[in-house]
Design a binder for these strands. Structure first.
Lengths: 192, 192
DNA sequence: CCATTAAGTGGGGTGGCCCTCCATTTATCG
DNA sequence: CGATAAATGGAGGGCCACCCCACTTAATGG
C-alpha cells in the first residue's frame, strides 16, 4: 500500500539536490547504454559533474541507480501491458507483451534482467513489483481463457525472459537470438 | 581426440609447477563453490599458498581458471551424454541430459553458464566445444526420431539451460526453481 | 533584505581488486 | 656437484567502491 513517496511534513528536498539526481540518472543512462551494466560509478559521477560521494548518497547501491535509470522505461512496459489487456486474444496479448519485455531487456544491455534479479525482501524491488503486477494481469486473463498452462506464474515467465536476455547480452547477434529462444520458451508455456 | 595434455619434446613443465597448478585449481574450486563465479583471484592464490603472480601466469584470465576447475565435471557430463546415446527413447534421453546439465550448472553456482558464455573465437572455448559436441549427438538422434522441433540447435538448448541457471543462481530456492523453468522450456522444444 | 540553519557537497582517504616487473629461489640435467 | 633456465612471489601501479568531515549554499523567519 501507500503509493505516495513518503512526503515528510516540512523539508522534502532541496532544489539543487533534485537537479543533481537528475544529472546523475542521465549520465548513468548514457554510460550504461554504451558500456553495459557494470559501468564504473565513478565515471558516472564524473560525467554528471558531481563527486562520487554525492552519487553514493543518493543511490546507496548500484541496484538503486539502475532502478532510477529504468523506472520510466518500465513504466512504459506497464502501460503497454494495460493496453494489451483489451486485446481480443488474451493468449496472444500475453505473448506479445513477453516479447516486448524481452526486446526491451536486450536493447538495454540486459539491464532489465538486472532489475528483476533477486529483488530481495529489501526495499529496492519497486521496478520488479511494477512489472510483475502488470504482467500478472495479462497472465491471469490468458489463464482464464485457457491459453496457457495453469501452473505457470508470472515470476517464472519474467525469470525466463530475463534469463534469455542475460544469456544473449554479449552475443553479436543478440536480439535475433533472444527472440528465437523466447519463441521456444513461449511454446512451452502454451497449453498444448 | 587427444586426451593427452600436449607433451612437448623436452621440458614440458617442472614438477612443482604442476603441483602448484593443482593447488590453485583446488582452491579455486572450493572458493567458487562458496562465493560464486566472481570470487577474488587474490584470495584463491592466498588459499592455494601461492603468490598472485603465479596464479596469473598459469591462468591468464578468469575464464581460463574456471575452465580448468570445470574440465572434469564437463567431461562427466559428456560421458553421461554418451551413455544416454544408447537409451531406447531418443527424446527422453535428450531431455534427461538437459536436466542433468541444468542441475550441474545450478549446483556449481552457475559456473557452467559462465563457461558457455561467448566462447569467442579465442582459444578458451574447449569446455564449450566439448559439451556442444556431446549434446549435439543426443539432439540429432532426437531430431531423427521426430521428438524435437527440427529447427532448434544445440546452441539454443545450452543457452536456455545456462540462462536459466544464471537467472536462478541467487535464488534461495534455486535448484527447484531452475528445474521448473527448465521443464517449461523443454516443453517448448518438443515436437507438438 | 539579511542572518540563521541544516541539507547538501566533494576532495581525499581506505581498502580491495586485477595485473605486471624483476630479483631471488629451486628443480633438473650433465 | 655445478650450471642453467624455469618458476616464484613480494612490491607496486592503476582502477574501483565506499566513507568521513570540513566547507558551501539553498531555504526560512524575522
Amino acid at each position: 500500500m501507500s503509493q505516495d513517496a513518503a512526503v515528510p511534513p516540512r523539508r522534502p528536498q532541496r532544489a539543487d539536490a533534485r537537479r543533481n539526481v537528475a544529472r546523475i540518472v542521465a549520465a548513468a543512462g548514457a554510460l550504461v547504454a554504451e558500456r553495459g551494466a557494470g559501468a564504473s560509478l565513478e565515471e558516472v559521477a564524473r560525467r554528471a559533474g558531481v563527486g562520487s560521494a554525492t552519487l553514493h548518497r543518493h543511490f546507496p547501491s548500484r541496484q538503486a541507480l539502475l532502478e532510477a535509470v529504468f523506472r520510466d522505461r518500465v513504466a512504459a512496459l506497464c502501460a503497454r501491458a494495460d493496453d494489451l489487456l483489451s486485446d481480443p486474444d488474451p493468449g496472444a496479448a500475453l505473448f506479445t507483451w513477453l516479447r516486448a519485455v524481452g526486446a526491451h531487456a536486450v536493447a538495454n544491455r540486459g539491464l532489465g534482467a538486472w532489475l528483476m534479479r533477486d529483488g530481495g525482501p529489501a526495499l529496492g524491488s519497486t521496478c520488479h513489483e511494477m512489472i510483475s503486477g502488470a504482467g500478472d494481469a495479462l497472465l491471469e486473463r490468458a489463464r482464464a481463457a485457457g491459453a496457457v498452462r495453469p501452473e505457470v506464474a508470472i515470476a517464472h515467465l519474467l525469470k525466463l525472459v530475463s534469463a534469455i536476455s542475460l544469456a544473449t547480452e554479449e552475443d553479436p547477434d543478440g536480439p535475433a537470438e533472444a527472440d528465437r529462444l523466447l519463441a521456444i520458451a513461449i511454446d512451452g508455456v502454451r497449453a498444448h
